[in-house]
Amino acid sequence: MVLLQQSLEPVGAATEIATNVLVKVEDLRKTYGDLVAVDGVSFEVEAGTIFGLVGPNGAGKTTTVECIEGLRNPDGGKVRVFGYDPGSEHRRIYSQLGVQLQENGLHKNIQVREALRLFASMYKDPVPADRLLNEFDLESKAKARYESLSGGQKRKLQTALALVGRPRLLILDEPTSGLDPQSRRDFWTSLERYRRSGLAILLTTHDMREAEDNCDVICIVDRGKVVTSGSPKELLEREQLGTRITVRVDQGDDRGGEATVRQALDRLPGVSRIEAVAGRLHVYGEGDDFFKGALDILREQGLGDMSSRTANLEDLYLILTGRDYQHGETH
């Protein structure tokens, strides 16, 4: 569970472990020159949950996780991992923390198995390299050099490296970018198994739908701020979005124009929201009356170019930020 805007009480290692809160972020701030990358972000990650930090590129996800990983020093706020400060108590947290960075960061000439063995040697009771090779479908690449791997294989190897030390906490930055659909499914299946074994998993993704389907808790960030957070189900129920009907409309207030259509729909029972984005109207609502009524009105207006689907978190993002969700992903 995420508890936002909690009271600022002193943080100690003992209380953290007792409450199963492995990561605690309070009012985190980080600026680069004039750019405010993270602007007062707070959340907590508990054991046994997959926590998704979701948002478009440039939302501040990577900066946030890099502050948690102790790779960047926050300008303000407080970060605790297992109750320790990741900046000054780096070595205390890394015996139980597995990390996958967004960039790749292995020597181009290192072989896959060599990398796994090297990382294994850093921990007391590591997972055998061959078991991870098998789990991440990299057996045939065991002797391949890192630079010869595909983007997806590099991602898989980095995930395996994050898991090799049997961590209590896993932090993965964009773990599924560059993976093909089958690898994505395998990844989430594998992650679910680790979650059930009690790991806390904090990951970032720009893919809202993927997060909605796979994360227990989602924290949507945008322009350095938390937009909303909670379980995907909670979030969608909170706004009563139900079904979304999208229709292409004309400008102006003639028949079929945006203003006229909006006016007609406003009177329909069951409509929870209407959002206009780039020449289209998204109409949200619940119930059979809503769906049938809305289609009738739209036909009356002479509009035929429409589609409908169940509302998802991208719609929530649109409603909370007033902007269409842009993946902007080029990986």
Partner: peptide, 16 residues
């Protein structure tokens, strides 16, 4: 090169 390719950063995010 280690610094540029993120190798040092990757190792900083480990017990090494």
């Amino acid at each position: 090169e280690y610094r540029e390719q993120g190798v040092l950063k990757r190792f900083r995010a480990s017990p090494l």
